[in-house]
Design a protein around this nucleic acid. Sequence first.
DNA 1: GAAATATAGTTGCATATGTAACAGTTGCCA
DNA 2: TGGCAACTGTTACATATGCAACTATATTTC
Lengths: 157, 157
Amino acid sequence: MKKNQSTSQIFDLDQFLPYLLNQAAEMTSQNFQTVYRVEYGMTRTQWRVMANLGKFGSMTAAEICRLTFIEKTKVSRAVLALEEKGFLRRVAVVGDRRSERLSLTPAGSVAYQALGKSAAAFDRDLRKRLGHAVADTLEDVLRTLMVNPEGVSSSFP
Amino acid sequence: MKKNQSTSQIFDLDQFLPYLLNQAAEMTSQNFQTVYRVEYGMTRTQWRVMANLGKFGSMTAAEICRLTFIEKTKVSRAVLALEEKGFLRRVAVVGDRRSERLSLTPAGSVAYQALGKSAAAFDRDLRKRLGHAVADTLEDVLRTLMVNPEGVSSSFP
DNA sequence: GAAATATAGTTGCATATGTAACAGTTGCCA
DNA sequence: TGGCAACTGTTACATATGCAACTATATTTC
């Protein structure tokens, strides 16, 4: 691998936040993936949807979209898949026949608890490797970022 | 959206680093995506590969994999696509006939410069929205994380 | 209160991706 | 040397995803 000296650097990848975040996300997710995949035949999207339902109890698909930044078609299909596995149920929303309130079934909750336990163990392991100070800082910053999403998706390009 | 009080929380999504990183990555990447997609018909993977070649001048596919945590088949296909667009060329490595040294063609460099310019603008915009202090902290931590990947992919599960 | 506009969610189709299996090459070491 | 393990990169096939278009329902606006 040879460093490129020729071009005047307008742009340095190492400072590009979306890129850094992608790397980090990929790096940290890659191993946990095998847990929900081999044990429950779930995809990342399905796990993410399940985790949100586990946390919030019940939500509509649109709420999941807004909260997770996952595309609505991806959510739609994840919901269908989770329903077919018997992990999720839909209940009509009174007063709005467009949307449905989603929640985990008992079986879904059991799976969520089990996965959650693995996830917690994975997270502890990860934090140990990163160092607790770094991990805590990272968590704070990411949470700040999550809390202020308003501007992020607005004006570009 | 109704908060779930019933289950004793073994696991809180808000503290799960891989999840937070995924959200953040998705959130920040979503808009920039349209730039390389509509202007060059490129995918995220292709852009990531190109950006690395732009930065490092020349690398093998395996080096890209190690550096970016992108799967080798994904890299393989991105390389093929970039080659077909005329953005990338392969040169045999002397002394090892398994691998090829990859680099951008002049056309590829031009595209990279243009995308880099857009990316830099996007990043400035993002940092402004996050606040510079937060953005700088985030960058530092992510870079720290990148520099110490050794442990991350090792022991779990 | 009718028409225009916005929203929730799904579907069709092309494309991208993941996993496993593979071919070819190299390194090791007995 | 020979043979086995490790490595680089590609391919096959099933699955997941992205985008646009669509249905159905709500909301706004005049």
